[in-house]
Amino acid sequence: MSPVALHTVFEMLAYAVGFRTFLWTRKKLAPSAFTHDDHVAWVGVGAIVGAALGAKLAFWLDDPLAAFRDFPDLAHLLEGKSIIGALLGGLAGVELAKKIAGVRQSTGDAFVLPLTVGMCIGRVGCFMAGLSDHTYGNPTTLPWAVDFGDGQPRHPTQLYEIAFLLAQYTLIHFRRTALVEPGDRFRAFMIGYLSFRLLVEFIKPLPYAYLHALSGLQLLCLAGLLHYYRDIPRVLRALFARRRNAWEPR
């Protein structure tokens, strides 16, 4: 099986397993996220449409020279996508769908584990796809560097992302009682992931530089973090504050 076909298989597997995980999570880990089944449909449609549009827009922003190289060839224009754009677009789509449907409660906590599982599976496919996926890192001499087929040992940034996502979910899960506000687990997920991607993009090839330094994806990460700027201090305190012992003075 070719690397591209393997990537497609893992992408489909990510969607399937992520969806099954969502069905379990909404009942076991986030039962208050949805009060009616029709809310699930509204949020699902908003997430899918928003993620699809956001993923494409992010690709156009990150590498406009490649995206519009054969314009107006629509097939080429629709080839690329980005998980950062999908997350931010999905967030916008869900918020719009909730306003239309009159859903007032936060629904994000039900998506933390499904997103983590799905993204980890998807990144396995990205790693196996090698150079054709354009998710590898810059050349490095580190002992765990990987040659993706061009003779250059590179940062396996796909594996870095898997490790980060698993560590982040472990932290969020064990600190879930400290994340008291509905939606805080999802906010913690987004703040952590956007921060990780903002930093890891510095060790990846830069297809197009904005401000002579940042990629389009990094600009999207900054925009996402700006969206959560009021929540960041509270979420970080909940995640990392030392638990007070019962005998300590209050």
Results as ranks from 00 to 15, higher is better:
Gly137Ala: 06
Gly50Asn: 08
Ala188Pro: 00
Ala75Trp: 13
Ala47His: 02
Lys204Thr: 00
Arg20Met: 14
Ile84Lys: 08
Pro64Asp: 10
Leu113Phe: 00
Leu214Ile: 15
Ala188Cys: 05
Leu88Arg: 00
Leu225Glu: 07
Glu95Gly: 02
Leu159Glu: 05
Thr21Ala: 14
Pro3Glu: 08
Arg69Leu: 14
Pro114Asn: 06
Gly85His: 14
Met190Ser: 05
Ala51Cys: 06
Trp42Met: 10
Ile121Cys: 04
Cys126Ser: 03
Val180Tyr: 01
Arg175Asp: 11
Ala178Arg: 15
Leu219Phe: 04
Gly90Asp: 09
Leu222Gly: 11
Gly151Ile: 10
Ala110Lys: 04
Phe186Arg: 01
Gly118Phe: 04
Leu88Gly: 00
Leu96Cys: 04
Asp150Val: 12
Ser106Cys: 07
Trp42Tyr: 15
Val112Trp: 02
Leu220Gly: 01
Ala129Phe: 01
Val235Pro: 00
Arg20Asn: 11
Pro143Ile: 02
Met119Ala: 13
Asn245Ser: 13
Gly216Met: 10
Leu113Ile: 01
His155Thr: 08
Ser82Ile: 09
Arg244Ile: 13
Tyr193Asp: 06
Thr177Met: 08
Thr25Val: 15
Leu6Phe: 12
Ser82Gln: 12
Ala51Lys: 07
Phe22Leu: 15
Met128Gln: 10
Ala58Met: 13
Arg244Asp: 08
Ser106Gly: 06
Tyr169Ser: 00
Leu61Tyr: 10
Gly18Asn: 11
Arg244Val: 14
Asn138Lys: 15
His155Asn: 12
Ala101Cys: 11
Leu91Phe: 13
Thr140Lys: 06
Gln152Phe: 09
Ala163Glu: 05
Arg154Glu: 06
Met128Val: 14
Tyr193Cys: 05
Tyr136Cys: 02
Gly183Ile: 09
Ala167His: 08
Gly122Asn: 12
Glu181Thr: 11
Ala213Phe: 14
Leu96Ala: 12
His173Pro: 03
Val45Gln: 11
Ile100Val: 15
Ala188Asp: 02
Ala47Thr: 05
Gly216Lys: 05
Gly125Glu: 08
His7Thr: 02
His134Lys: 12
Phe189His: 00
Gln158Ile: 02
Trp60Glu: 11
Met12His: 08
Asp231Ser: 15
Met128Tyr: 12
Leu222Arg: 09
Glu181Asp: 11
Ala101Glu: 12
Ala67Asn: 10
Arg154Gly: 00
Leu142Val: 10
Ala110Gly: 05
Phe240Glu: 13
Ala163Leu: 15
Cys221Val: 11
Leu165Ala: 03
Ala241Lys: 13
Leu65Thr: 14
Ala92Thr: 08
Arg242Pro: 02
Glu181Cys: 01
Gly80Asp: 06
Gln168Trp: 12
